[in-house]
Computed example of a mutant assay.
Amino acid sequence: MTSFPLSAHIGYLFTERPMPERIAAAAAAGFDAVEHPAPYAIPAPEMAALLRRARLTYTQFGLRSGDASAGEKGIGIFPDRREEFARDLVEGLDYAEAIGVKLVHAMAGVLPEAGRLAEHWECYVENLARAARAAAPRGITIIVEPMSALAVPDYFIATPDRAAEAIHAAAEPNVGLLLDMFHTAAAGLDVEATIRAHAPLIRHAHVADYPGRHEPGSAGLDFGLIARTLAAIGYGGRLGCEYVPAGRTEDGLAWMNRHRAKWVNDTNPH
């Protein structure tokens, strides 16, 4: 039977606890893995020990994304920050290797349309290719995630089509797509059609309902259809649970058993 292991995004889930405790909480709740874009506050040996104790793996994280307090969401597009990107790349890949992460997100950055030049695109593609070449000997894939204008205004890569353009332009085999179902719906796109259109590139998937970005099953997305479509394209990864709990995290976890059972049935009608 087809089922998809679930990865708890602990930047959204279990935030009532300090970061180290979120890992144990995810394991206790039945998740198969965790993810968080910025793990660096916890030294890699300590993170590896936390994961071993919880018997979890770490799905994906990002290179450093600049100054979050200033609204930065990546630096990959900025030509004057190439050296900073290169330093962050070494740190990120070393950390990933130390804790067994195989997917690393190289965020593009925020820049209003009016300020965008060809050099920003060229810089991002160059940085993706550089990151991929450095990651390949470690067995690591670099991922690109489109983020909708609704959630992240002025993010440079706002749609799956644009992400696919960047991936193809980087022209390295270990660059792939992180497809977020919420962002896809928020961009006004058909989720099923988008999964099928970009099937060869998808390396990781995020789930949250739309609208609202709460627990799967809380709004309008058809997660049975999403599961059937992912199964049909041969997706073999995890589903990253990057949603905003409507209340306390544990109080909203009933969807896991309900939808796990439903997804298994939906993806195996016979």
Rank of each mutant, 00 (worst) to 15 (best):
Y58G: 00
E83K: 03
D88W: 06
A70F: 11
E83P: 02
I99R: 06
P79C: 08
L56G: 00
R53L: 09
R53Q: 15
L56A: 09
E72D: 12
L63E: 01
R81C: 05
Y58C: 00
D94S: 10
R52A: 15
L51M: 11
I99T: 04
G92R: 02
L93I: 06
A70K: 14
G71Q: 08
R53V: 07
G74W: 01
A96E: 03
I99H: 07
I75K: 00
L56R: 04
I75V: 15
L56H: 05
E91R: 09
E83H: 09
Q60G: 03
E97R: 03
K73S: 11
E91F: 08
Q60L: 15
F85M: 15
R64G: 11
A96W: 04
F78D: 11
L63H: 02
L50K: 01
E84H: 08
D88N: 13
R87D: 13
G66Q: 07
R82F: 01
A68M: 13
D94K: 00
R64Y: 09
E84F: 05
E84A: 12
G74Y: 00
R55E: 15
R87T: 10
E84N: 06
S65Y: 06
A86P: 01
Y95V: 00
A86D: 13
E83G: 05
I75R: 00
E72I: 06
D67N: 14
P79L: 02
G62F: 01
G71L: 08
T59S: 14
E72Y: 04
G76V: 02
S65A: 15
A54L: 00
D88Y: 08
D80T: 10
A54P: 05
E84V: 07
D94N: 11
D80M: 03
P79K: 03
T57D: 14
E91G: 04
L63Y: 03
